[in-house]
Amino acid sequence: MTAATLTDAPTEPGLDPDTGKLGMWVFLASEVLFFGGLFVAYLYGRTHFPAGWAEGSRHTDVLLGTVNTAVLLTSSAAVALAVACEEDARQRRWTARLLALTAALGVAFLVLKGLEWHAEWREHLVPGPAFALHVAGAQQFFALYFVMTGLHGVHMICGIAALGVLARGRSRERAWARARQLEAAALYWHFVDVVWIFLYPLLYLVDRHG
């Protein structure tokens, strides 16, 4: 940040500007371990049941998965731009709109994910007695698929709510919707994006050439 933008950014006296960011990074470190256990379970399944994992992955919707990846990457760029706008007094009018755009892209992601889940339900890909695939491990793959994408979806809902509230607060010039809060919320959103960046090849792209 330049000296000029530092003077523009509203600050709270007596508070280190990095405090919020550091707090969010520590929280995100705990989130890495939260998702990390599921990634370990995935690794175990993929190495012990390669055929089931490949069969399961081939039954996911790669088109919707790819479109959703693009949507989420775009939303991350939008929220990064919102933070940059907030730091420059002449660009601040864009902040609330970019935050709203990010939240809208998050909603679009969840709608597409819901359509995908609905199709998988109809194709009997939800683990249970009527499960459609008869390869060892395929059921475990889909169990992990629903847990991982479901947990990611819960994080998305939290992020959408936070960004939506901040967009509304920023458009009304509320004191609690300033650069420090926006930056912490943006960090959370980027983390949710990074989790999906890893979920995409692990869930959708296994053995596609088979």
Partner: peptide, 9 residues
């Protein structure tokens, strides 16, 4: 300063 902020953005 304003010019620096603009170029920074």
């Amino acid at each position: 300063e304003a010019r620096a902020a603009t170029s920074g953005f």
